[in-house]
């Protein structure tokens, strides 16, 4: 069987050259929700129950950020091979033009030193982990304001 790349969760984001998160827009009051909803509109002044899919802004500004210096417990799926060391990853909450803040991991190779509240980031799709079907993909936030990524072990002394 061929190995494929598929989203780690169905229907939350598009892939391709210009990937985007998929939200739901209430057809009655136009409020947008993410993740998608098929239930009831969360606006207390609206009794809408119908939604249409809408792609969210690909760029936003960092509301805040952190990292995971210890491997999170299950159902987090470890990304490193057995015997290899855990590699910490950064996380950011990002404010989008739709007035929604969305959490995500930060693109591979970037850490908290590359981030600042208010900085602009762009949504990208990367591999979260691999399973028997192949790579499982996730949305991540790519910092737009920082310099090129430096591989570990090649840091400048300056």
């Amino acid at each position: 069987m061929t190995q494929t790349s598929t989203p780690a969760i169905e229907g939350w984001f598009t892939t391709g050259d210009e990937p985007a998160l998929i939200g739901s827009r209430c057809t009655a009051c136009t409020t947008v929700f993410f993740p998608r909803t098929a239930g009831f509109c969360g606006n207390p002044a609206c009794s809408g129950e119908e939604f249409e899919d809408v792609e969210l802004s690909r760029r936003g500004r960092i509301w805040s950020y952190t990292d995971a210096q210890y491997q999170p417990p299950p159902p987090y799926v470890p990304t490193h091979a057995e015997g290899e060391a855990y590699v910490p990853f950064a996380l950011a909450a990002v404010e989008l033009a739709e007035g929604i803040t969305v959490l995500g991991q930060v693109a591979a190779g970037y850490g908290v030193d590359d981030l600042r509240v208010g900085d602009e980031v762009e949504m990208v799709v990367e591999t979260l982990y691999a399973d028997e079907t192949g790579d499982r993909l996730i949305w991540r936030w790519l910092p737009l304001n920082s310099g090129p990524v430096v591989e570990l072990g090649q840091e400048s002394d300056a």
Partner: peptide, 12 residues
Amino acid sequence: NLSTDSSAVAGV
């Protein structure tokens, strides 16, 4: 949560 509500329609 993985996200917040949207303030675009109802306001902050």
